[in-house]
Every structure is written in C-alpha cells, then in structure tokens.
Design a protein around this nucleic acid. Structure first.
Length: 275
DNA sequence: GCGGGTGTTCACGC
DNA sequence: CGCGTGAACACCCG
C-alpha cells in the first residue's frame, strides 16, 4: 500500500524511537517474510533509519542493514515496554517480530506476504535490483533531466510516474493526484510533454508528496495503512481524484471524475481539465 | 464465485 | 531491445 509519504512517516518514527536500541532476537513467523541470517544482527545497535524509494533501511552498528519493503499490505507496529496490545484481526498476519533489549517489539504485519524483511551487509544493498535501478526522488532531479528521461518513454505518463526506475517514491495514489494538479491527461504519452508541462508536473508531484508526508500518509476505508503507533493518516481526505470516480471535479468545472485502467491499475482523472 | 486492492517482477507475443 | 498485456506473489472483502 504505502508510497513515499507513508513510508517516510514510518521512517521518521523508526528513526526517533529505535536509534540506539539493541536487537535481542528476531522471530520469523512466515518463511517468505524474513530473508537472511538473523544471527548477524543480534546485539547490534541501530544507528539510523533511511529510506530508498519505498524501501526502509535500518542501519546497524556492525555494517549490516535490515531492509524492509512493505509492498501492498505491509505494516510496521512498535509495541513499547512489553505492553500487551489489544488483540485484533491483524494478529494472524504478523510475519516477523524484532525484539529489542529494552523490551520494545517491532512487528512486521503483512496480510498478502508480498513484503519482506531482509538482513544483509550494507554493501550488498547496492547490488539489489531494486536499489541498483532506482531513480532519483522527485526533488533530487532537475526539470531538464526529468524532461530528458520522459523524452525516452513512449508509455502513458501515469504508468511512467509509477516506474521506480524513472523517479522513485510515487505510486498509484500520488501519480493520479499529481497529474490532476498539473492538468495532464494520464494517458498522454510521456515523450510528448513539453518542457514547461514537465516542470509543472514535477512541481505538483512534490506538492502532493509533501502534503502526504505532512498529513501522515493516507489510510483508505480498509484502514490498512497505519503508522508505527497504529494511527491512520489523513491524506485520504485530500484526494484530488484518487478513488473519487463519479464525483464532481474539485475545480468545479462540471467535469466528473472517471476511472479507467492503465497498465492494469486503476486510473482516475477529470476529462474536462486534464488534457 | 469473481474482481479488485497505496507494489514489483517476470514471461510472453509482437 | 522495447512496448503492452497479463500473470504471479497471497489474502481479504464487497
């Protein structure tokens, strides 16, 4: 589920609560969810928590890292000081438990088992396909370079925005909303966008991502995304077009939000103001 | 029972 | 090689 704003919200909390903590033991409750040897990080201290695109990287004092990708349904929940949390229906989807010496426990919950927790050497990180090909974040690329990259792509701009090799961090929600902000039809071939449109688009991507971070990410009716403390975000109240098919365009131009499919994913736009 | 879901990767046909 | 499509991963929900 999570895109850059959701992952960044969790990263900030992990960094705040876990830096300096030592790992006591790690429990794997599902074979596919934990990759690597947990013995490598026992007793190691967390020195910092970084983010690469939508992936979290907990850096350890012994030059190992614990990398986590939440994919579609992953959650991280921190339970403090052995406090017994209320049992809920998520309990059966707990896949990995990371226990700290101070009694805190970090739960990796993942209903669909697409996500993973990987223990590896810091140098190995660069060799992962996901990291190797990862594009810059929207604020780390110039308008010119972004334009040049888009010139090489003939697919629909909506599909290109969610391609992590082009720019990293943008997923389905923020791609749809950024295109509405920029007034661009999601079906537009990326290489036909003029430099001035690309400049506006990059600006709007940054705008919706920053708003997403500020609001703690977005949590749908299913309540699937929650932060480290189990709280929902509120960007969903600000959705421009995502999940708003059938509703009137917020520009009050008389347009009605349409839902189509692009690259197999739900795509939302206003036919009246996105051209 | 079917289709769809905030992600990524792979296989296939052209 | 690149593009488009669809499936796969696996589970819940409407």
């Amino acid at each position: 589920m999570p895109e850059l704003p959701e992952v960044e919200t969790i990263r900030r909390q992990l960094d705040k609560y876990l830096v300096g903590q030592k790992i006591a033991y790690i429990e794997s409750l599902h074979k596919k969810s934990l990759v690597g040897d947990m013995k490598e990080v026992l007793n190691a201290k967390i020195t910092g928590v970084k983010r690469l695109g939508k992936m979290l990287v907990m850096e350890m004092s012994n030059n190992y890292v614990i990398a986590i990708h939440l994919k579609m349904s992953g959650q991280l929940i921190l339970t403090k000081n052995n406090k017994q949390e209320t049992r809920n229906k998520n309990d059966k989807h707990i896949r990995v438990k990371i226990n700290f010496l101070n009694g805190n426990e970090l739960l990796f919950i993942d209903q669909r088992i697409f996500g993973w927790v990987r223990i590896m050497k810091k140098e190995e990180l660069k060799t992962m396909g996901y990291v190797k090909n990862l594009g810059p974040e929207p604020w780390d690329i110039t308008d010119i370079d972004f334009y040049k990259k888009l010139q090489k792509k003939s697919k629909a701009i909506k599909i290109i925005l969610t391609d992590q090799d082009v720019i990293s961090g943008v997923g389905n929600i923020y791609a749809n909303d950024a295109l509405w902000e920029a007034g661009i039809d999601p079906r537009t071939s990326a290489n036909t966008l003029k430099p001035d449109k690309v400049k506006i688009l990059r600006k709007m991507i940054i705008k919706v991502l920053k708003e997403g971070i500020k609001l703690g990410g977005s949590t749908g009716q299913d309540g699937k995304y929650v932060n480290l403390e189990g709280e929902p975000g509120s960007y969903q109240d600000r959705f421009r077009v995502y999940d708003r098919d059938g509703e009137g365009c917020q520009r009050r131009d008389g347009g009605v939000i349409q839902k189509i499919k692009l690259g197999g994913r739900g795509t939302y736009f206003c036919p009246k103001c996105q051209m």
